[in-house]
Each structure stands twice: as C-alpha cells, then as structure tokens.
Nucleic acid binder design. Structure first.
Lengths: 266, 266
DNA sequence: TAGTGGTCTAGACCACTGG
DNA sequence: CAGTGGTCTAGACCACTAG
C-alpha cells in the first residue's frame, strides 16, 4: 500500500510539468493553461495505456486519486466522468471505477433478423485469413499522414454467425507506427484492436464510417461463399486513437440477406 | 422582468410535486426520490416542448434558474450539461445557453464522395410526395404499442442532391397520437420532425437503425429514377421521444453509386 | 460497518462576450 | 464594464456494496 503511494508520488514528480503554474496564473494569460481535469484525463489515459491497470481492474478511489494528484475530489470526478463517457472506464456505485474491456475488431453494430426484433444477436466469430505488407496508395498515405508508398500492414478477416459467412474485412494500418505487429500477435491477443492496446497502449475509436450498397468482385464473392450478383453492404471505417491520430482504415463487405447491420442508441 | 419572475414562480407552484420531500428524506427510503437535476431536466424539457423558448433562443442564466427553482447553481449546471449532451441545448461561454435547432427529417448522416474526403457535403433537398393513412400491420403495431390495424400516418419523401434523386423515404407515425398531423402541417413546418416539435412538443431521437443492401421494387425504382438492378442501401430507422416513446418508423432507400452515406463521430 | 460512487451546496476565481 | 458560462475547491449527506 505504502509502496504504491510512493510509486504514484514518484510518477507525479516526473509528470509535474503537467501541473505547473496551477497557482501562479497571471503569467502569459494568452497561452491558456489546460484545465486540471483535462490534465488528469491525459495522465490516467497514459497510465492505463502503459498497463498500470488491466481491463476490468479497479482504479484507486476518487479520494485516493485526489490525494495523489493534490486536487479536489470533484475535479477527479469530472475527469473520470468524461472518461466514462468516452468508454474507457465504467463505474459501479459502492464498488469502484473500472477499466473497460478491450473493443472487438467487429465494432459496435450487431447482426439481427431484418424484421425488427430486439432479439439477442448471435455471437460473431472471427477467422484471421492472414496478414501481409503492402505499400500505401496516395490517398491512404494522406489519411495516415505518412509518405507515399510507405509500408502498411494489411489484415484480412472473415466473420461467421452460426457457421455462415457474413462479412469480409480488410484492415490497413501504418506498419512503421506499429512495428512488430504481425499475424502472430494478432492471433495471440485475439484481434487487431486487442493487439494494439496490449502492445502499443492504443485504443482505436471510430471516427468516420461510410456506407454503400455494392456488388462483390469474384475473389471477394468466393471468400464470402456468395453469389457475385447479390447486393452487399460496404462499410468503410476510419478509426483513430483518442488523441485523434488515424490508426486504421477498414473495408468491410457484409452480407445482409439474412441479417441486418444494426446500431442502437441509448 | 418582474412578471417573468412571477410567472416562473407560479409555474413552480404548479410543479411543486416534483420538488416535494427535498429535505424530509427518511420517509419510505425504498421509493427512491428522483435526483434534483433529473427533475430539473424534465421541467426544462417540458417548458421547451411547450414553446416557452424557441430554437436558438437564450435560456435564463444558470444563476437565474437556480434562483427560480431554489436549488444551487451547480445542480442547474449538471442538468444543463446533460441536456447539452443530449443535443437539446448548446452553450456559448460569455453569451448563454440556447435551445438547439430543430432536427432535419434527413437525420445525421451526410452524403459525400465515396473515395474518402472530408469534403463539404452538398445540400440535400426534400420533396414531399404525399401523406396517406394506412392501418398498422401486426409488427408495426407492436412497435408503437398500439392495437392492430390502428391508423398510421404514412409520409413519403424524395431526396435530391444537385438535382439528382438520391433517396426515397417512407415514414410511419401513429396517427391517433399525432391527431391533426397532415400534409399541410408537414409542408408548412418544413418537415415531419419540425411539425412534431412545433405542434406536439416532441423531439424525435434516433433509437435504432438497421442497414442492409437490397434491390428496389419496380415502383420504388421508378420514383428514384434508377435501374431495378442496382444495389441500394436500405436504412430502417426507429425514432423515439426523449422519454422513450416510439414516434416514427422510417424506411429509406438510398442510392450510393455516386455518394456514400457518411457518419462522423466527435 | 467501512469504503465506494452519487448528489447537492456555497463560494471563489477565471475567460469570454457584448454593450 | 456587467453578465455569462467554465473551472476548482471544501464539505455534507445519501445509496449501494461487500466483508
């Protein structure tokens, strides 16, 4: 217990630049100081990314954090509330504040019978088809803010519901940013996003999604075990880190004859 | 100024049941009292629905509201913050808190070139095809929690971008719940959602969305001026009031050869 | 019963807007 | 300059969880 406190204290020393001119104010009031609760958010995000607390582990209480960081409990609470809103944490009254689970590569939507029901969706199973390295085309390079023809990691996945193929994914990630990421890591961690989080402390966040109805190429149709004529839902998704850095560019083709791609709010 | 205060005071009297046992506590502690800020949210939502403040009008300041409602400014702030999060209000530092604009029937997504750009989307124009009354099929009736074959208002709309037809909408609303709603009201208010808000004080909120890739029937293809073979994005959307009451069931067919249906976050 | 998050208060100072 | 929202503090009490 005491050692934890001391370690936290040492960490605070090294991050003291964050809490610099707290009382001074007055100096250079044009360069706005970042609010305390924002600094606390950043600090907590970094410590979670570094693995100080694993998924579903409990954080120190609000009062402990307030003590460690020498701020009031209300300020810690505001930081935690925002991180809960962003999905990084969850709270349980009387128990504590916990780190959220790692996101699945599938994302948020579920696949349910088109009619309408609020039926419980069947589990989606992922098969990793393989990883390869490709060179970034012009537009992709721009998206990732990397040079043209820079190496990309390409991950292909096949999704099944009750044994039936339902979707084909093609994910692109900047290879130099995630050096060492390969099929073995993805397999061991159980997904691209899980690997990103465990190895690089990065949590992908959906930033933009483009939806279209298209038809498949011969190769894609074969992988999905579908006719080349059938209309297919195309989902093009850009994910980024919480800081806004673009992380992944994912093209999904989804068969929606049997199951509809469903998104619920609140 | 004084009269406003008095009216607010009178209103408070009539809604005093909301702020009943604030200090008493202790009594029947199993029947949890609703938090003050939730009561304030409800009160403000009702007053906005009743038209006390129009879109883009400024609300009383946090201190004024706190005075009227006899609560602390922090509690008013919490209520306002949540309503901002729900999209009902927006704030501007130094200016005040304002009522948000009325939502468009189109919804949140925009239509942009499939490539990827963050290009500024072209304006979407709506043409009202007509309103009619139909009887609720079994599954729709269940959704709206109304009896089978109860009357529904059916609104059909055609959407255009730069003159090209891009989408066909078919909206169903419970006719008895929105008695008097017809083509004239929709036209005058400039949309179904605008009419719902101005006439009934209801703000539709997206609750669920189902996406599929389909082909069109002959009639729909004709209306959209499209081939019957082309894959079309089907969007099935259920909207509800903020209280959770189901309001609208909307089927959209969207041509996505030229433009992709795009959703952005943050 | 001790410890946690959830609500509420009162008061302070700041940054921004507008007349 | 007065008035607004934005941040931060300190302290109180409540409801829930778990030993």
């Amino acid at each position: 217990m005491t050692s934890i406190k001391i370690m936290s204290y040492i960490r605070l020393i090294f991050t003291l630049d964050l809490f610099d001119d707290k009382k001074s104010g007055m100096t250079s009031n044009k360069l706005r100081r970042q609010p305390l609760y924002e600094q606390i958010k950043s600090l907590l995000m970094r410590r979670i990314a570094e693995g100080e607390w694993q998924a579903n582990e409990v954080l120190p209480s609000e009062w402990e954090l307030a003590g460690e960081l020498a701020v009031s409990q209300g300020t810690v609470r505001k930081a935690l509330t925002e991180l809960v809103g962003e999905g990084l944490l969850y709270r349980q009254q009387g128990r504590g504040t916990f780190v959220s689970d790692i996101a699945s590569d599938w994302g948020d939507g579920s696949l349910v019978t088109p009619g309408l029901p609020d039926e419980h969706p069947d589990a989606i199973v992922c098969e990793l088809l393989g990883c390869s390295r490709v060179n970034a085309a012009e537009e992709i390079a721009q998206r990732f803010a990397i040079r043209r023809a820079a190496p990309l990691l390409r991950v292909r996945q096949l999704w099944r519901v009750r044994g039936r193929t339902v979707a084909l994914d093609d994910a692109l990630l900047p290879a130099e940013r995630f050096d060492g990421l390969d099929a073995r890591w993805v397999r061991e961690c159980g997904g691209v996003y899980a690997a990103l989080q465990r190895r690089f402390g990065v949590r992908p966040r959906l930033q933009m999604e483009q939806l279209r109805a298209v038809t498949l190429s011969r190769e894609e149709a074969q992988l999905l075990n579908a006719s080349i004529d059938v209309p297919v839902l195309s989902v093009l998704r850009l994910s980024s880190s919480i800081e806004g850095e673009p992380i992944e560019w994912r093209q999904r083709y989804c068969l929606t004859e049997q199951l509809a791609y469903t998104v619920c709010r609140t």
